[in-house]
Design a protein around this nucleic acid. Structure first.
Lengths: 183, 183
DNA sequence: TGGCTAAGCGGACATGTGTCCGCTAGCGTG
DNA sequence: CACGCTAGCGGACACATGTCCGCTTAGCCA
């Protein structure tokens, strides 16, 4: 999977699949994997070898967005109190999740897989950073970890478009309250 | 759908499907709808006419369990302070969700459907009762409703078996904290 | 009781995901 | 440059969900 051997066509196919995926996602709102394979001009087997699950593919397609989300964490911490930073980060997640519903679901699954592989993954790391800062200054309860938070905000993927405005941020506040250390 | 006409065979088929579903669920852990149809001795079309989605079927199969959960709410309120009652009710939900993972997911979807039909459904009603009691005595924030809570505890369906003990109750406490009115 | 009518049946079909495996051809080697 | 090894290809296949529609037959009515 690194860069050894047969890279020429394999890497090329991989890139073509990602490009096709972006195209399909942009044009159709239905994301059918075999359609992506077809569009990319490769067999289904090829697609599935490069990206074993739907989530693997989407995670790769939106890697940049994820990176941006991750990078935001330390930046927010530099500017705000830990609790505020976490709240702001939540806001960004909400913004992103609203637009890219399916993607967020994919990211969630990805984070979960990372976790079960005893690694937090980029998003998990970002969250850990935020939580640790809050624990250090006593504003966040000490018995929560990144996985906990991922689970709690997972409702974002199950929210209906119509109720988004009414509930997304509101529930994020409630979660944040639950995470705060109670005086 | 009530009890008019052609009830004889239709109702019979419906009952047979439910029975077959219970049998399949008990024996195999894989729940394949066409297997249930086969076992019930009916066509797939028949199964899907009676239960348009997988969730409809499961919800019916576990109707009794759901009823028990619903009935527990007023009973708990009679014995405990509202906040405690809610906590206990959460415990029951957790117990149930742990054993019947898939079912809980089905129930969640069902509740959601009820909600979009402008009705809370039995579970929603139970939760509303609990929340209202807490709001009345000022222990629960006034800006939450049943749907909010359903969304928040939905993480239960996404928890891995292995992490259940470590997280299920713990997160329920955090949610409860978030629901409390902050002094 | 015999016929009519639509409620209800049931399985073929359409669609989507994910797997498997025989074939192809890129690359290192002599 | 010719050759062989194996990474990688790609599409046929297996399997699940859910839909559709022509046929059957229960129940009402004369």
């Amino acid at each position: 999977m690194d860069s050894t051997r047969r890279r020429a066509d394999a890497a090329d196919n991989r890139a073509r699949i990602i490009r096709a995926a972006r195209a399909v996602i942009a044009n159709a709102d239905e994301i059918k994997l075999n359609a992506i394979a077809k569009q990319a001009g490769v067999g289904q087997g090829t697609l599935y070898r490069h990206f074993p699950t739907r989530e693997d593919l989407l995670a790769e397609v939106y890697r940049e967005d994820v990176d941006a989300l991750v990078a935001a964490a330390p930046a927010l911490l530099a500017e705000h109190e830990p609790l505020t930073a976490l709240a702001r980060w939540f806001d960004r997640v909400a913004d992103y999740a609203q637009v890219k519903r399916g993607v967020f679901a994919a990211v969630e699954v990805g984070v979960w897989r990372d976790l079960s592989a005893h690694s937090l993954g980029p998003i998990g790391d970002a969250l850990t950073t935020l939580l640790d800062a809050g624990k250090a200054d006593g504003t966040i309860r000490s018995d929560v970890d990144a996985r906990d938070v991922i689970l709690l905000i997972g409702y974002l993927t199950r929210l209906e478009e119509a109720e988004w405005d009414a509930r997304a941020r509101h529930l994020l506040h409630i979660v944040l309250d639950g995470l705060r250390r109670r005086e």
